[in-house]
Design a protein around this nucleic acid. Structure first.
Lengths: 137, 137
DNA sequence: GTAGATGCAAAGTATTTGCGACAAG
DNA sequence: CTTGTCGCAAATACTTTGCATCTAC
């Protein structure tokens, strides 16, 4: 079911260059949400020749063919994460910057309902929660 | 209850310059979500001397003292709107760019619940729905 | 072999900032 | 008066792009 990024590229007729393979690998191994700079420096550790322009071009391409998701959280640079089957939203710790992924079916349903109510079909959405850790847990 | 922007500036000890008054007026009269360029050109019609730098500084200031909200919708420049008592979220028509404001108490409650579940106190959130108009309404 | 990808540096956008002149309180 | 603001232009931050070269298929 869950194919690798490389398989998806083949399926889409996208050329599999070394650079793309490396970027795919780094993103697959990442379990955070790196921005382009961060991604670039991780990629440089594998191949020090890859340019930042290629990284920009590649994340854009990967986003278009649906294997990466781009997030523009508050006041920062764009950050990316690998897109798997399961959709999720984000809860961001405004102190530490930590990002928690969550799914809430009920909210998803209500969103669809709101769109319908205004005569729209929901095609996408963005939900970000910003919070602070509670002291007494 | 709902004070004008000027009253809020006084209350916060913020100097009321002509430029700020004009920007406040334009934002108060706007019933859309202009970006800084658009705001600047509206402002120029009243006083052609006001610089874009001042507009940037002012919207930032107004955001800090809680009288404007900044939105960074998909792939565009930052857009602003006046913040009134009632909080609302946005439904964006991805074809026309039209923006519909909505409130859904149930979603709000669920968001708080999600944050709680992970041990967080919700301090802010962002919910944007992207949709296309239905043909048969 | 050829279409498309890469690296580089230059060009774009959007936004911020240093500074001397100026104005609000 | 004094502190903060303004306009200007230069600077910054992020991202895109033109072009000559190279590479996957």
């Amino acid at each position: 079911m869950s194919e690798t990024i490389e398989e998806k590229c083949l399926a889409k007729g996208v050329k599999l260059t070394d650079q793309r393979k490396i970027i795919a690998k780094v993103m697959t191994e990442a379990n955070d949400h790196p921005d382009v700079d961060e991604l670039h420096s991780r990629v440089l550790k594998i191949d020090p020749k890859i340019s930042i322009a290629t990284v920009y071009r590649t994340v854009k391409l990967f986003e278009e063919i649906g294997i990466l998701a781009k997030h523009e959280f508050k006041g920062g640079k764009a950050r990316y994460e690998q897109l798997n089957e399961g959709h999720h939203d984000h809860l961001i710790d405004i102190k530490s910057g930590e990002i928690i992924e969550f799914v809430d079916e009920e909210i998803e349903k209500l969103q669809k309902k709101v769109a319908e109510k205004y005569g729209y079909t929901l095609v996408d959405h963005k939900l970000e929660l910003y919070g602070v850790k509670k002291k007494t847990q």
